[in-house]
């Protein structure tokens, strides 16, 4: 997933560098608060370990091997901010001295593999692990968190690559950087990560955590404050926000979601008839923003984003009102 130089335009690269800065600043503040003068030796040593994890070949079913990134296991053991920093330093060394990933694209790689993986992986782990107290369940949660987090990172990398030919073309029309659009980059990237790399990350995260629980449980930082789910509220908002930003991707897929046809599309499907019940009910409700389109905005991309925000807002308000009405207390 290490994007080399030449695949992304400098504009994209600098945008992602800028996006990384506040996260890394927050992370180093958190690290200093937690570790004080131990910050430098501890993070350096664990960065060295993070570098090693990325080098390990993990045996996978079918006799192949894959590489894990290891951000999620570091985040579970050391906390998401320190986990983020250790992967960042390891990525810097890989780019500078080993030519793994580019210098201009370093910001993109840090964003995908350090920042997003640490925050998302840790949040998913905490969310799942909070359900049951058994160690076995925690290990499964860790593996699932690793699997989802690496795929999220791969998806982001695919999006960063896939937008290149949309934005950057020469006067004669040929793509200047990564040549394939999102319809190619996303399936191509996800195929490898949903299978090999995802499994490698899941194995490394789950099995390593299980080994540490059995042999050295004191290693895992007990963080009492974290146990409260309330602390993940801001994180949940960030993730929802990211997902909303990704909604326009839906525009790229041709056709309608299976089973969500309108009356006209149904007749075009070649079914030969329109189900009678469909005809009866279909005129009952006409949505105010049919097809997520806001003619006022005149741009389907913006319309999608706006629909996303509006949808989330409506859902949140309804749930809030229900809680108020039934006087449920959020413990």
């Amino acid at each position: 997933m290490h994007i080399p130089d030449g695949y992304l335009s400098p504009t994209t690269s600098f945008t992602l560098y800028t996006v990384c800065t506040p996260f890394l600043m927050k992370a180093s503040r958190e690290a200093k608060k937690k570790l004080d003068s131990k910050t430098i030796p501890l993070i350096s040593l664990f960065s060295a370990l993070s570098f090693l994890i990325m080098m390990f070949n993990v045996p996978l079913p079918g006799g192949t091997t894959g590489h894990a990134v290891g951000t999620v296991i570091s985040s579970i053991i050391l906390g998401p901010w320190i986990g983020m920093l250790t992967t960042t330093v390891a990525l810097i060394i890989q780019a500078l001295f080993f030519g793994d990933g580019g210098i201009l694209t370093l910001g993109a790689n840090i964003f995908n593999m350090a920042i997003v993986m640490a925050l998302a992986g840790y949040a998913i782990f905490r969310f799942l692990a909070g359900w049951k107290k058994e160690t076995g369940w925690k290990i499964v949660s860790a593996a699932v968190a690793g699997y989802i987090a690496i795929n999220l990172a791969a998806l982001l990398a695919a999006v960063e690559l896939g937008i290149q030919p949309i934005i950057f073309r020469s006067i004669t029309g040929q793509p200047l950087y990564f040549p394939y659009g999102l319809t190619v980059s996303i399936p191509a990237m996800m195929l490898g990560h949903l299978t090999l790399a995802g499994l490698a990350e899941a194995f490394v995260t789950g099995l390593t955590l299980s080994w540490i629980y059995r042999t050295n449980p004191s290693l895992i930082t007990p963080d009492k404050k974290v146990a409260k789910s309330g602390r993940f509220f801001p994180l949940a908002i960030v993730i929802i926000f990211l997902l909303i930003l990704l909604t326009p991707l839906g525009l790229l897929t041709p056709g309608t979601a299976w089973g969500e046809w309108s009356r006209q599309q149904l007749s075009e499907l070649g079914l030969g008839y329109i189900p009678a019940g469909f005809d009866r009910w279909t005129g009952l409700w006409s949505a105010p923003f049919s097809g997520y389109n806001f003619s006022v905005l005149g741009n389907s991309f913006l319309g999608y984003l706006f629909s996303g925000f509006l949808g989330v807002f409506i859902v949140v308000s309804v749930v809030y009102l229900l809680f108020k009405v039934f006087k449920l207390k959020n413990k």
Partner: peptide, 8 residues
């Protein structure tokens, strides 16, 4: 691999 990592 994972026990090696855990030990590390």
């Amino acid at each position: 691999v994972s026990s090696a990592l855990g030990t590390l």
